[in-house]
Design a protein around this nucleic acid. Structure first.
Length: 501
RNA sequence: GUUCCCAUCGUCUAGAGGCCUAGGACGUCGCCCUUUCACGGCGAAGACACGAGUUCAAAUCUCGUUGGGAACGCCA
């Protein structure tokens, strides 16, 4: 009997979702979907100091924006709500293995901690921070691994409980003494990895305030939630040893593990804020498409069997396999991300592309025609110059009626003797146009006409016209811009320039 | 320090002992298209970290060296 594949992504809600997390989530998702399994979202929020519901909401929204839809776990009830304005009731859950927020599973962890305490696999430890620090420092001096050696490991439960009752604080530690020599995992990505069991000391299960700690929750939840595969970042590789010890002590079945390499910055250090944009949300704001981000991060460590590089989410699902995941870490390259984004962008139909671009334009206060036919035509012109949605802002700005101004650089051209005649001839010609919008040919014909009427050529012809159109003597090609500008707009601009002379 | 992981062009990668004179992509450079640009097309430069082994044969297997990374928390 082969049970259904269950894979989870388990973020901790401390800040935004960053690209490394997004890639882990992606691989989790792709693996589940490729083999008809389930993708589960669990929230690891046992660190009360750092976890916030606002972060949790942002992460869920980012995941949703990326299109990494989960089958089970925490969900946001009203996805349009402002993350700053939240209440507990805004979250809900789907799935039968909940709760999916670790902060709401505290009794479960407590129960298993008690079980371990009863069976002698864990003990109360009354060591103070100072004592632990001293031990670690000494271990370091003696070139030993900095592990704690607790004098309380063999204290009876009754004795410990008495101390507790007297108000002393204690953590619950897992007892590593007496375990087998080596633990071996058959890592899905790295092959056999062997850990000596003395690699770790007695580690904390429950903090002195009763809150459980990551490794403990993770092992219990993965077991209870029936995960079949645990795909996560390489930094967890050595945690696997502790988790295996917990699985063993509790008699749980082990899932299969796979450890993904780490994403690096250009300096080969783990990608972090100091490398610039690292959160998905920042890329969203910079005008990147979710499918492009998925496509790019998928290729950081995985390759298509035929070497195809531009892939849709469905193509990613159809071709994903762990065998093609590279164990070596990869450097995040925003330049290539841009290229992937541009490729996806240009493949979009104009209606969709406009609807995605428009918010960026509006955000900058650009005033552009509402006519869909015009929008389509404008994208035909600008699309090949856009790598991100946001690039549209600079492209459209010169033709936005709200942004026309006569720049300082235009002064020189405006001072030429012939300029007034040129612009007047231009204005005349524009008002004589039969249609609201000129074609490229109309514009070229008109330009020649102005040349004849005003009797000038070269820069004395082109620059004044350009100033009359965009207020600057330099910039994008007029034959592309002018056909996108209404006659009335062109006339208004020419008048404003004329008034300056 | 200890343990673990990793190592092909600047970057992402292909490569499962002979198909490798090491392939593709981004970037770079050049040419073409285009009366500018962009898009597109064509082309060039550019890598198996090093050293030993195993083998008739090694980018590929083994060991070592070097380099990089991660973990060693009452963070996850």
């Amino acid at each position: 009997m082969s049970s259904k594949i269950r894979v989870r992504f388990a973020p901790s809600p401390t800040g935004y979702l960053h690209v490394g997390g997004a890639r882990t989530a992606l691989y989790d998702y792709l693996y589940a979907k490729r083999f008809g399994g389930e993708f589960i979202l669990r929230v690891e929020d046992t660190d009360q100091e750092r976890s916030t519901e606002e972060s949790m909401k942002m992460q869920l929204q980012d995941l949703k924006w990326l299109g990494l839809n989960w089958d089970e776990g925490v969900i946001i009830k009203d996805s349009d709500a402002d993350p700053a304005m939240l209440t507990d009731s805004e979250f809900s859950e789907i799935g039968e293995y909940g709760p999916y927020r670790q902060s709401q599973r505290l009794e479960i962890y407590k129960k298993y901690a008690d079980q371990l305490l009863e069976s002698g696999r864990a003990y109360y430890c009354f060591l103070t921070d100072e004592e632990i620090d001293a031990q670690r420092e000494q271990a370091r001096r003696e070139n030993r691994p900095p592990q704690v050696n607790s004098p309380y490991k063999n204290m009876s439960i009754d004795e410990a409980k008495a101390k507790l009752a007297a108000g002393e604080k204690a953590v619950v530690r897992f007892k590593t003494e007496g375990l087998k020599k080596d633990y071996i995992i058959e890592d899905l990505i790295r092959g056999e990895v062997k850990f000596p069991s003395d690699m770790v000391g007695d580690f904390v299960l429950l903090r002195s305030n009763g809150m459980p700690v990551y490794n403990f929750c993770c092992a219990i939840d993965d077991a209870l939630m029936k995960m079949t595969h645990v795909l996560r970042a390489e930094e967890h590789l050595s945690n696997t040893l502790r988790q295996m010890m917990i699985y063993e002590a509790l008699g749980f079945d082990l899932p299969k593990f796979g450890h993904l390499s780490i994403i690096l910055g250009p300096d080969k250090q783990k990608l972090s804020k100091r490398h610039g944009a690292t959160s998905c949300n920042e890329y969203r704001e910079k005008g990147y498409l979710p499918e492009a981000i998925l496509n790019y991060i998928a290729m950081l460590g995985w390759s298509h069997p035929e070497g195809k590089e531009i892939l849709s989410k469905q193509e990613l699902i159809d071709n994903f396999s762990l065998e093609r995941v590279n164990p070596a870490s990869a450097v995040f390259d925003e330049v290539k991300l841009k290229w992937v984004n541009a490729s996806h962008l240009r493949a979009l139909d104009h209606k969709t592309l406009w609807s995605l671009t428009e918010p960026f334009l509006k955000q900058e206060g650009l005033e552009l025609p509402e006519d869909p036919e015009w929008q389509d035509r404008s994208l035909e012109v600008f699309k090949t110059s856009m790598e991100t949605l946001k690039d549209a802002v600079d492209l459209y700005k010169p033709i936005s009626s709200a942004h026309f101004e006569i720049s300082e650089e235009a002064k020189d051209a405006l001072s030429w003797e012939s300029t007034k005649a040129v612009i007047e001839a231009w204005k005349q010609g524009v008002s004589a146009q039969p249609n609201e919008f000129m074609s490229q040919e109309d514009f070229e014909a008109l330009q020649n006409q102005v040349k004849d009427t005003a009797g000038v050529k070269g820069k004395h012809l082109f620059m004044p016209i350009r100033v009359a159109v965009i207020g600057k003597p330099h910039g994008a090609e007029l034959k592309m811009l002018v056909p996108l500008m209404a006659k009335s707009e062109l006339l208004a601009r020419a008048d404003r320039v004329l008034a300056k002379i």
